[in-house]
């Protein structure tokens, strides 16, 4: 029998715990594929967040650490400094990275830690049931912004790629989306590049993946993707914000 597609060696047989139609599964798989393609399975370790990817430590088929909420970049720093011959990434959601863990991500980036950070931005807290995220759009209703996010009261959504691009040290920063097959292919390239730079010890690499949360947004998966294209992409502009390897400063 000819094998056309199979699970990468870098994923365990553990079933994903993501909701049906959620793009987390795609992001998780893209990272696993990139690690396999870069031949890093024996040298890679990851840090799982608190959030929808909290069980990521079960999914990846190599050593994993589960971090406290928001602390993944600090944990990854300790891991990388402790075993410099290993390659470390974190997988974090928007609440984890852009709210409770803001200090940790900014300073890990500012130190230029040789780690890769994959940032899933779906504009909402998924695991805890649809509360407002730091990336929730203006006017967007969530269980803790039931009248819509009011920027006058709670501020505007945070754009992490732009924020981190103000720092000197980061080597690679790109925002991609998981909203269409074409976008996913571009996302795969970005994830691959981050892992490749990680392998080459170039420095701090950061990929933001615009994702959907059909369950908490209250849409079916198709509608969720359309909604994200119409509402998130105008605010969260896709593109390369920093790529020292390609001369983009």
């Amino acid at each position: 029998m000819q094998v056309i597609a199979k699970r990468p060696e870098t994923l365990t047989a553990e079933p994903f715990t993501y909701c049906p139609g959620c793009t987390h599964g795609i992001a998780t798989r893209l990272i696993a594929e990139a690690i396999e393609e870069q031949g890093l399975i024996n040298l890679m370790a990851g840090v799982a967040p608190v959030g929808c990817a909290v069980f990521a430590y079960k999914f990846f088929n190599f050593d994993m650490a589960e971090a406290a909420h928001g602390r993944a970049p600090a944990v990854a720093t300790g891991m990388k400094r402790g075993r410099p011959n290993m390659h470390i990434f974190t997988y974090q959601g928007d609440g984890d990275l852009a709210a409770i863990g803001t200090a940790e991500i900014v300073h890990a980036a500012n130190r230029g830690e040789h780690i890769s950070v994959f940032f899933i931005n779906n504009a909402i807290y998924g695991m805890t049931g649809g509360q407002m995220a730091p990336t929730t759009l203006a006017g967007m209703k969530t269980t803790t912004s039931p009248y819509g996010r009011n920027p006058e009261d709670i501020g505007y959504p945070i754009r992490m790629c732009e924020l981190l691009s103000s720092l000197v040290a980061p080597y690679y920063i790109e925002r991609v989306s998981l909203l269409s097959p074409g976008d996913i292919l571009r996302a795969k390239k970005a994830v691959n590049k981050a892992i490749q730079y990680n392998k080459e010890e170039r420095g701090f690499t950061f990929v933001e993946l615009i994702s959907t949360c059909p369950t908490n947004w209250g849409f079916d998966p198709d509608k969720a993707r359309e909604w994200a294209k119409e509402n998130m992409l105008p605010y969260y502009k896709l593109g390369v914000y920093r790529d020292k390897g390609a001369g983009v400063e």
């Binding site: 370790a45 840090v47 650490a65 971090a67 406290a68 602390r71 600090a74 944990v75 990854a76 720093t77 300790g78 891991m79 990388k80 400094r81 402790g82 075993r83 290993m86 940790e104």
Partner: peptide, 11 residues
């Protein structure tokens, strides 16, 4: 948390 990471790699 850096300590957590470094202890996690056994050092």
């Amino acid at each position: 948390n850096m300590v957590y990471g470094a202890a996690g790699v056994g050092k």
